[in-house]
Simulated scan of single mutants.
Amino acid sequence: MLQASVDIDTGEALTERQKVVLDAALRLLVEEGDHLTMTAVARRASCSKETLYKWFGDRDGLLTATVQWQASKVRVMPVDRKGLDLASLTASLERFASDWLKVISSDTSIALNRVAVSHASSGKDDLGAIVLENGRFALARRLKPVLEAGRQAELLEFSDAEAAFRTFFGLVARDVQIRLLLGDRLELTDAAIGGDAVRATQQFLALYGAKTGPQGL
């Protein structure tokens, strides 16, 4: 696989034109599933295939950038490591949880994950690995520094950041993603998502909140 010419994590590296192209690719994934081609994306986005190859390298590079662009919509609120308090830590975790629930419940993410699962079982291409590396694993890399900052500020207690992240991820997701992938029509309103984000964050803090120290919970 050729390396994509753009490197996306938060979406800031993309031009507005590239965002339009990736949105077009996402819409095609929703409409056509695994029949995504460079030609179809170029036609939908009104650009040349040469431009796509220049920006993304090849089809896998385009898929990687598409997954990264979707994952970049889950924002991690930056925290001040030196002045971190419980309120700012809680706000950062709630924002992450809310954004992630909005992303995984979108038609584009549902379609993308369904295609990735089918490809992973068939060995058709690397889309499953692409979704893991640039979706779930990328989100872990972005949130773990917040968790580590919470530990340094004596707001959190854990020995393994990965285990703490997995717990938080599980509290946020619950059975939502698998139900959506299986066709359950959950009514996830903004209010419901906000409530779920607050609840998951409070549950996480109850499990990992520091019980002692100057800033203990």
Rank of each mutant, 00 (worst) to 15 (best):
213 G>P: 01
55 W>V: 06
70 Q>M: 15
27 R>E: 14
29 L>G: 01
128 G>W: 03
176 V>Y: 10
73 K>T: 08
159 S>C: 14
99 D>N: 12
83 G>L: 15
127 L>M: 10
182 L>C: 14
190 D>M: 07
55 W>H: 13
151 R>L: 07
201 T>R: 03
104 I>C: 00
104 I>T: 03
213 G>I: 05
165 F>C: 03
170 G>Q: 12
107 D>H: 13
14 L>A: 06
3 Q>I: 10
42 A>D: 04
102 K>L: 11
39 T>D: 07
182 L>Q: 14
53 Y>K: 13
20 V>K: 14
136 R>S: 11
122 S>E: 08
207 L>C: 02
104 I>L: 14
188 L>N: 01
69 W>L: 09
38 M>D: 05
63 L>A: 02
64 T>L: 11
36 L>A: 11
107 D>Y: 04
85 D>F: 12
43 R>L: 11
127 L>G: 10
137 F>P: 03
216 G>Y: 08
27 R>D: 15
10 T>I: 05
119 H>S: 09
2 L>A: 15
177 Q>W: 06
8 I>F: 02
156 L>A: 05
206 A>K: 05
84 L>N: 00
195 G>F: 07
156 L>S: 00
175 D>P: 03
125 D>T: 08
62 L>F: 09
35 H>T: 12
178 I>G: 04
19 K>A: 15
198 V>S: 01
88 S>Y: 00
32 E>G: 09
129 A>M: 11
204 F>H: 02
16 E>N: 10
185 R>W: 00
30 V>S: 02
206 A>R: 06
191 A>S: 12
185 R>M: 04
141 R>W: 04
42 A>V: 00
216 G>H: 14
90 T>K: 13
191 A>V: 14
131 V>A: 13
48 S>P: 00
78 P>Q: 04
196 D>R: 14
18 Q>R: 08
102 K>D: 02
163 A>S: 14
200 A>M: 04
189 T>G: 13
55 W>E: 08
216 G>E: 07
18 Q>P: 06
165 F>M: 12
68 Q>L: 12
16 E>M: 15
207 L>T: 05
3 Q>C: 11
199 R>I: 02
2 L>R: 13
31 E>P: 00
190 D>W: 05
116 A>Y: 00
151 R>E: 11
18 Q>I: 07
202 Q>H: 03
55 W>I: 05
113 N>L: 08
191 A>Y: 07
120 A>I: 01
48 S>R: 01
184 D>A: 15
105 S>G: 03
149 A>Y: 01
143 L>Y: 10
69 W>G: 09
31 E>D: 15
12 E>I: 14
112 L>C: 01
200 A>P: 01
209 G>D: 01
206 A>V: 08
13 A>V: 09
154 E>W: 08
51 T>Y: 09
40 A>Q: 09
173 A>L: 14
69 W>F: 15
48 S>T: 04
149 A>Q: 03
86 L>I: 13
42 A>Y: 03
91 A>G: 04
